[in-house]
């Protein structure tokens, strides 16, 4: 199976199907190492799609296969195990555990997965170094800035070397400068071969970094475009129009 993520006619209805389906017969494939953006307004189904891909929810009908694992009918416990081994999460509001130090936060997925302590420690140190927050290791999240917290979250997401990183509005709670830094880190990871699924409503963010933009609308895939590096010149894109100056 060459695709990393495969959804086939995936549907998710709530409230016994009387309401509109949150996700309606979506068929989608995402390949290894791709940086894909899922776009859409609220209510479009992008959070539902994210839940299904992450194994946080099961489809009402259809199939969901991620990294070779068929999530469609997995038990809660099996889904949990799948998540900690194959998925890394980066959330809009960071979602670090406030009562754990930075180091402990990063270690959580590794410890849940039963990684040997020494190996986990080494890996976490490596990641914290890489993300430039090594000196915060002993501090509690409440003492960190937004950007630092998101980087801790990224370290946590990467500690188990997941097949897929799910970034859900990763810059939503950050100011623009910090947001840029975080996106640069993500892009760097992508360049090293990490598959990333970026969920956002921000078109500029999506198109700037992703090579493929999937647009959802009303629970269906509305548009699925690969964007090229067209190298268009400024003049093809922008024309500043003059006006008559009345005197």
């Amino acid at each position: 199976m060459s695709a990393l993520v495969e959804l086939r006619e995936a549907t998710r209805v709530y409230n016994g199907g009387s309401a509109r389906a949150a996700l309606d017969g979506v068929t989608l494939e995402i390949g290894l190492g791709e940086l894909t953006a899922i776009m859409g307004p609220s209510g479009s189904g992008k959070s539902t799609l994210l839940n299904l891909v992450a194994g946080l929810d099961r489809p009402s009908s259809g199939r969901v296969v991620v990294d070779g694992a068929d999530l469609t009918n997995m038990s809660e416990a099996a889904l949990a195990r799948f998540r900690r081994q194959r998925i890394g999460f980066v959330f809009q509001f960071f979602n670090l555990l406030p009562s754990l130090t930075v180091r402990e936060n990063v270690l959580v997925p590794a410890q849940l997965a039963g990684m040997p302590a020494g190996k986990a420690e080494a890996r976490s140190r490596e990641l914290l170094d890489r993300l430039g927050i090594a000196e915060t290791a002993g501090r509690f999240p409440s003492r960190l800035s937004g950007g630092q917290q998101q980087r801790v979250a990224m370290a946590r997401a990467l500690i188990n070397s997941p097949a897929l990183v799910l970034a859900d509005e990763p810059t939503g709670a950050l100011d623009s400068a910090t947001g840029v830094q975080v996106m640069e880190l993500l892009t760097e990871l992508h360049r090293e071969g990490q598959a990333i699924l970026l969920v956002t409503h921000d078109a500029k963010l999506a198109t700037r970094h992703a090579e493929r933009v999937v647009s959802l609308f009303d629970g269906k895939v509305f548009d699925d475009s690969r964007l090229s590096r067209s190298g268009a010149a400024a003049g093809d894109l922008v024309r500043v129009v003059g006006q008559e100056v009345q005197r």
């Binding site: 416990a77 999460f89 979602n95 849940l112």
Partner: peptide, 16 residues
């Protein structure tokens, strides 16, 4: 509640 949700997302099984 929130912490538990985070842990579950990170892969804590119901048994855990």
């Amino acid at each position: 509640l929130r912490d538990t949700a985070i842990l579950k997302a990170l892969g804590m099984t119901p048994g855990q």
